[in-house]
Design a protein around this nucleic acid. Sequence first.
RNA 1: GCCGACGUAGCUCAAUCGGCAGAGCACCCGCCUUGUAAGCGGGCGGUUACGAGUUCGAUUCUCGUCGUCGGCUCCA
Length: 603
Amino acid sequence: MSQQKQERYEDSYLYKVRHSAAHVMAQAVLELFPDGKITIGPPVENGFYYDFDLPRNLTPEDLEQVEKRMRQIVQGRHEFKKTVISAEEAKKIFADQPYKLELIEGLEKGGFDEYGNPLNEKPEISIYQHDTFTDLCRGPHVENTKEIKPDAFKLMSIAGAYWRGDENNKQLQRVYGTAWENKKQLEEYLHQLEEAKKRDHRKLGKELEIFIFDEEVGPGLPLWLPNGGVMIEELEKLAKEIEERAGYVRVRTPSVTKEDLFLRSGHLPYYAESMYPPMELEGVKYYVKPMNCPMHHKIFGSKGRSYRELPLRLAEYGTCYRYEKSGELFGLMRVRSMQMNDAHIYVTEDQFEEEFLSVIDLYLKYFELFGIEKYVMRFSKHSKAGLGKKYVDNERLWIKTEDMVRRAMDNGNVPYEEVEDEAAFYGPKIDVQIWSAIGREFTLATNQVDFAQPARFDLKFTNKDGQDEMPLCIHRAPLSTHERMIGFLLEHYAGSFPVWLSPEQVRVISITDAQNEYAESIAKQLRENGIRASADVSSQRMNAKIRQAQLMKVPYMIVVGKDEMAANQVSLRARDGSQQNNIALDEFIARAKDRIARRAKEL
RNA sequence: GCCGACGUAGCUCAAUCGGCAGAGCACCCGCCUUGUAAGCGGGCGGUUACGAGUUCGAUUCUCGUCGUCGGCUCCA
């Protein structure tokens, strides 16, 4: 394998430019608010931010002023000067900056760097000064402010952000900016943002009539339009095919159950925040399910199980409801009602590794099918501090199952990143992280270990020696939920789905109304061949019909005029603009059927 | 949930300083009979998200509610 040496972002020139721009911005903001308190201001992807605690909220007009002042400051060619100082000196300098004092204390103890990230060694304490501004900072920075080009940065937005990312802390005002080496790069970036917006699944979903939200129905509760309905059916067909081959069996369970079930499962103690509140009938509380697992556990436990039955793979496309906080909703990617590509696999400890890896293989198979290349597998572990709060309180089993996952991934040679404090409440997991068109990060597929619920439900099987043994449970959702998957696919394909997934696969276009009947009969024949087709026999001109089909990103357009009708043939125009005139309908049907059957990427 | 911005016809967007709410597309009705991304004409369409307030008068100013968006927190 060729190991290309890539410069780390932290070592790049752009990183220094952005870091320095953040300092200049802080200076400008402090000039506007002399009593303002500064916190941290690091470079981030594509730019930088700085968090402030100010006497009043910033307005867009303030931002304009700050940006203007920044342009003046950078012209001043002020040198960035680093000075290493003692904690005592630092505390004197930042005597009226409480957040900085907190950071200095952290640095003194050696536990954290100035951004609150854990550190092994005790770092040196340094300050950077330019013009009138001094910040506690380890750098690095550019030589002087002139290196920040006045036409290569832009302040982007104001947002609230909690001090040290903890919602129990005070909310600060964060100003985001973007900065580049030159004007051209900035313009390219802004252009990219515009382009990304065109891929936004919320926009495409509306244009392609996939789904809608309705104020009266409620936030986070999508209504699937017929086109979305088709996509859901195709995804379920895919999942069913693959799962049947892999030995899964399908079950069905209710959406609402008694409180008792979720008390036993641990959802109420650990997950209640994300659940819709209970409804009470005849003195009994019922909850809408946020997950299918408790009911699958009930099915597992419904009779005596032998080791011969394992792995037992129970699959269900169940609709779950989670009360996501209002500000967390995001189009289809984050909703309150969702249909999960769910399954629970009950295995013996010996079977765990093979089964876990076979689920990972399943992801990879799907990713290949969809051409998904940009993703990260994240190994999400518990945190010691979360035990008994976010996570079931059994450290021994946490460590044991995490070791099992690590071993499985290592033995399977699957690359992954380990992350602390991201696990499910019942066990560690491998999440696949992807990014939306506008750069927001999401978990798509997930593969989770559960040692907690089998114990809570007292699940057991009889092993070879005739003894009771507890199975481990693997929760998995390689196709995520319909909502997130389709949201993602909309952006991934920019709405131009492969033929098999396209809501409308063929649009038959008559050139004059003399061919309307012929067009209808072709559409009918296509449908009889299992191809989703409709005929556009409106009185519009052909060009307008083609344009409409293009805008709806229909993969195939069949154009018929008097010549085609006379010869009993068709003309094919594909979504990519390519054309094939005067071909037999059967020839086209064969092509379309082949693409659909293979779930081919090509048209 | 928190901070900020926004909400005008089915969609995309206008409306000067507080003075009769407008366009294109879509839809409906005609005309045209058309050759690979928009033919022409006409018509319908609004309690300016909802509810209060200020004012002679509110799309415009103020407050509240709901929703959306940018973030934070959280997550399939």
